[in-house]
Design a protein around this nucleic acid. Structure first.
Length: 313
RNA sequence: GGCCGGGUAGCUCAGUCGGCAGAGCACACGCCUGAAAAGCGUGGGGUCACCGGAUCGACGCCGGUCCCGGCCA
């Protein structure tokens, strides 16, 4: 049976370079009553265009896009911020009598929009102190033991070597006085979605995906990725911690800064990191039982008819 | 042709005085609620170029062969 036809909103997820953006555009065109909400941690940044494979101006004129170009490159960003802004976008779409098509590959962001994840506030000073404490192996071990004592449930979800997650858990416990685990069952728990949505995923064979990733970087290089990075690096207001870690940008920046890797090596590194990212995306999405998968041998657009049949039942 | 350096995991390379073969990357399987294009765990992988020798025991020492790089002719 499935509730594909009864749900109002749609979500289309999948690994990077799978062609889901093009597919999403076709879906939007065919359905006519949807607006796209990009679920992408990097397309939010203005000026980061070629390296994020951002939809073109023409594409955005054809179908309304949200959560694209909503931040400046010198702003730090976060899941919580994304969640609030994306939900607002969805509400506005509903008010227009339309449906949202959530389109993207940032797993945690998708879940933040679709599920009722509540993010306890942050305390950057406390976080910095904890980060300093955890900088040595002994300090990290001690911090983890403390977490085990104060919040065994959270400790069981976090691996002892994962200093960043240990710090965050202790930060929340320190500021709220409540266990980190009391803020939710964890990302692995998946009940019915809070937002009424029908979720679909697209996949391609890994070898095809690897080819597409390599090809896409070659195209981005032609399209001026290096010049884009140079401009962002020269921006007097800076380039935020979250923005500058974007794949491709980070590697090219390292080349421009230190010159250490030659440009060829920088792009090779970016390709490798994208493949690793793609693997993490696969891991994240495939354990979500609410996603219905559609596969194609070469190009995601091949699944369009099946996808429309599924969503129009 | 002579001299010097090198040949170890798919790739780049460590390997102390001879004592069960190592790291990073790649790959695979997983984890993670305010950095998520981030962060983290586990795993599979080897005729240590080849042949012979001394030794209880060789990636390591001795002799030879083959490849690669550099210098000299």
């Amino acid at each position: 049976m499935g509730e594909g036809g009864s749900a109002t909103h749609l979500a289309l997820v999948g690994p990077t370079a799978s062609g889901k953006s093009a597919l999403g555009l076709e879906v939007a065109r065919a359905l006519g009553d949807v607006e796209i909400v990009s679920i992408d941690s990097m397309q939010i940044y203005r000026g980061m265009d070629v390296g994020t494979a951002k939809p073109t101006r023409a594409e955005r004129e054809r179908v309304p896009h949200h959560m694209v170009d909503v931040a400046d490159p010198w702003e730090d960003w976060s899941v919580a911020r994304f969640q609030a802004a994306a939900r607002e976008a969805v509400t506005e779409i509903e008010a227009r009598g339309k449906r949202a098509l959530l389109l993207g590959g940032t797993g945690l962001y998708v879940q933040a929009v679709v599920d009722d994840l509540r993010f306890p506030g942050e305390d950057l000073d406390r976080r910095a102190d904890l980060a300093a404490r955890v900088a040595t192996p002994d300090g990290l071990a001690a911090a983890y033991r403390e977490l085990e004592a104060v919040d065994p449930v959270a400790a069981s979800r976090i691996e002892p070597a994962n200093s960043r997650r240990v710090v965050r858990a202790l930060e929340v416990i320190g500021t709220t006085g409540k266990p980190f685990s009391s803020f939710g069952p964890g990302v692995q728990a998946r009940g019915p979605t809070a937002l009424p949505v029908s979720m679909v995923g697209v996949w391609l064979p890994r070898a095809v995906l690897a080819d597409r990733i390599a090809q896409r970087f070659a195209v981005m290089r032609e399209a001026g990725l290096v010049e884009e990075v140079r401009a962002l690096a020269a921006e007097p207001r800076g380039w935020s911690r979250t923005a500058r870690q974007a794949i491709g940008y980070k590697e090219v920046l390292a080349h421009l800064d230190g010159g250490a890797p030659d440009l060829e090596a920088a792009f090779d590194a970016a390709v490798r990191r994208t493949r690793a990212f793609s693997r993490r995306q696969r891991m994240w999405f495939r354990r979500d039982p609410r996603i219905t998968w559609f596969g194609a041998p070469e190009n995601s657009c091949a699944v369009l008819p099946a996808l429309l049949a599924w969503w129009c039942r």
